[in-house]
Simulated scan of single mutants.
Amino acid sequence: MARLGREVRPVSYPRGEIRASDFRVVEVEVRPLRRGEVLVRNTWTSVDAALRLRLRERAPAGYFPAFPLDEPMDGIMTVGEVVESRADGFTSGDTVWHASGWRDYAVVEAERPALGGVGTLTKLDVRSAPPQAHLGPLGASGLTAYAGLFHVAGLREGDVVWVSAAAGAVGSLVVQLAKLGGHRVIGSAGSDDKVRHLVADLGVDAAFNHHDGPLPDLLREAAPDGIDVYFDNVGGDHLEAALGALRRAGRVVICGMVSEYGAQTPPPGPGNLMLAVTKGLTIRGFRGSDHTFLLPEMRRRMGSWLREGRLRHRETVVEGLAQAPAALAALLRGDNTGKTLVRIEDVPHRGNADH
């Protein structure tokens, strides 16, 4: 009896907000394994704002390629359990991560690099953290936060740090890592509930809802003496406000620009970029996948902080594979807090060889 699995496939590139009609769930026959491959039943799959960049006819130059229409969406981080293995080092029952998400079964080549190496098939230790944590603080989100703050930003003693989208998957980790480093930290978010979460749960020194007024004024109130580091997840007017607030020799670290992801026309860029010259600022973009060499160090340190209760993480969990597009739409609207995940329901082995 052949095994049947489901896949979420894009059928049209969204114009503006993502809609359910832009996707369909198809049932396919899972092919037999070849040597060097494993069959994984996916249990958790990631939902990331940057997926919106790949739901275009052409993804940004230098980024991961656009998702082809009516094809499975390769390149989405996922955790699952090995069902069958023909690859050395993997056995049935192993918990692994890989990059063939938004489906319930995946055939994965064990040694094939994915997502710049971050998504290469990897066995996980789930004794001290649940499997889905490896999609958040112990996975790509954690790597982006850790590498961006400790290796890209060039933190110095006494730095004041502002983090935008600070209640999201990456931002919520960045603010806590900066606090662990002894820095004054300002976080901004898009709702009063998220602001309360930043202050009460994550321990930021000041936080504001960016809808509450002009950004320069809100930032000035939170950091009257200016900032030294801006960790940018938003771009646009947030980047412009940061340039105005940064002190001399300040640094901007850009890991995302969610304000541009679904825009029909690109939002205007900062009108005060000359401040980068007059203040001697450093503006540097980066991707977590450029820092895979830090994965062992990051997982060791982040795992320790999680076990000690010094690092907290919240999850927005959506139930059911078919709801993955809706989860992405909600994330892009700002409805999530922390890491957005889809829990994939257990699908029984069904189908027949004549399918």
Rank of each mutant, 00 (worst) to 15 (best):
K123Y: 01
N272D: 06
S100V: 00
W97E: 00
P68L: 08
G285S: 14
N42P: 05
T282G: 13
E240H: 07
T278A: 09
A222E: 05
R312M: 08
S289M: 13
M274F: 14
D192Q: 15
G136S: 12
P268M: 13
V170E: 02
A110G: 04
H211C: 04
A169D: 02
R9Q: 15
A178Y: 07
N209R: 07
S191G: 04
R248D: 10
G158C: 07
G148R: 07
I344M: 01
D22R: 11
G213M: 02
P137Q: 12
T91M: 06
D125F: 11
T316E: 06
H151W: 11
G181K: 15
V258A: 09
G182E: 02
L328R: 05
T78K: 03
H98E: 04
V229Q: 04
A330N: 12
P72I: 03
G190V: 06
A329Y: 10
L328D: 05
G256T: 10
P10H: 02
G309S: 02
E17I: 10
H211V: 00
D48Y: 08
D237H: 10
S12A: 15
V47A: 04
G236V: 06
T337E: 13
E345R: 10
D217H: 13
A242D: 01
G148Y: 08
M302I: 15
R6I: 02
G285H: 11
L180F: 03
G338T: 05
D70N: 15
S92G: 11
G250C: 00
W102G: 04
R314D: 14
R307T: 12
L239V: 03
D22H: 13
A241W: 01
D94L: 09
F150Q: 12
V82A: 02
Y230K: 05
T78S: 12
G181W: 02
P14M: 10
D201C: 10
A327E: 11
G250I: 06
L239C: 02
P224F: 08
A59D: 08
E71T: 07
